[in-house]
């Protein structure tokens, strides 16, 4: 079984988000980058399939050379090899096209990506890759078992869960639940050492459209100061929620 795990290189979850002075770009100054948290669950699940069922796990990102430490971390966690497509991932359609080309060429049985990235929150790429290749797509996936060429999956739906089965090849949009938080793999020293010599192939991007254009960034309007209410006087809060906030 060949598994492709698609990874986004994103600002650490604790990052303060700033934009450049002209508001045209995200300001990377002083920001630590990590594997997108939604992708980590899929990566750990893939490494589990490698350890238990002999899967071959490739990680891929679309990004410039500065994303390589993130790919090396994925290799340290246990992926067998890595692919970097040398382009700026500025458009969901463009990124999906890059991934679909690689999947077509290397014939993966299973493609796992996070259901969204925590930077642009598009949630577009895994579904687009599936549609480009006419493969089943299971989004917001919280359970994945593979046996032969069949997968049993659980996806989150509004207010509950849905169990389903599908044949490989298949594309999954993953999240927490694919593995539990406590079971997320953290690179150990041996993993970090071996990651240095695992193959990391850099490929040129294929031509693809950009379907959307990005305008000006802005930060959320600052909150007005908090109104503190005495713990002995919860009635005042009720009255404020009714008269001022008008939410009850």
């Amino acid at each position: 079984m060949k598994v492709l795990v698609c990874i986004s290189h994103v600002p650490d979850t604790t990052s303060k988000i700033n934009f450049t002075a002209d508001n045209k770009e995200f300001d990377k100054n002083g920001v630590q980058f990590v594997i997108n948290p939604y992708d980590e669950f899929g990566l750990t699940r893939a490494v589990w399939l490698q350890e238990k069922q002999g899967a071959q796990v490739t990680v891929l990102t679309v990004g410039r050379a500065d994303t390589e430490p993130t790919l090396r971390k994925a290799l340290a966690i246990g992926a067998n090899d890595a692919i970097r497509i040398d382009a700026d991932p500025t458009d969901g359609y463009f990124v999906a096209k890059q991934i679909a080309e690689v999947v077509k060429e290397n014939q993966y049985d299973l493609v796992i990506a996070g259901r969204e990235s925590i930077d642009y929150n598009g949630g577009q790429v895994p579904g687009m890759v599936a549609a480009m290749l006419n493969m089943p797509f299971v989004n917001a996936c919280v359970g994945l078992e593979v046996e032969g060429d069949k997968a049993s999956l659980i996806r989150e739906i509004d207010g509950g869960k849905e169990k389903l089965t599908a044949s490989l090849p298949l594309v999954v949009g993953g999240q927490k639940g694919l593995v539990e938080e406590k079971d997320l793999k953290i690179p150990n020293m041996r993993g970090i050492m071996s990651a240095r010599t695992k193959p990391l192939n850099v490929r040129e991007a294929v031509d693809a459209d950009h379907k959307v254009a990005v305008g000006s960034f802005e930060k959320p309007a600052p909150k007005s100061a908090v109104k503190m209410i005495d713990a002995e006087n919860v009635e005042e809060l009720v009255s404020l929620l009714h008269n001022e906030a008008k939410v009850i």
Binding site: Y93, G123, Q124, V212
Partner: peptide, 23 residues
């Protein structure tokens, strides 16, 4: 943007060659 809506949109975007703006 429900769970189902988010699963439909990218497929529709490819099938209709649409520009997709989410979130």
């Amino acid at each position: 943007g429900t769970f189902n809506g988010k699963a439909v949109a990218p497929v529709l975007a490819i099938n209709t060659e649409a520009g997709l703006i989410t979130n």
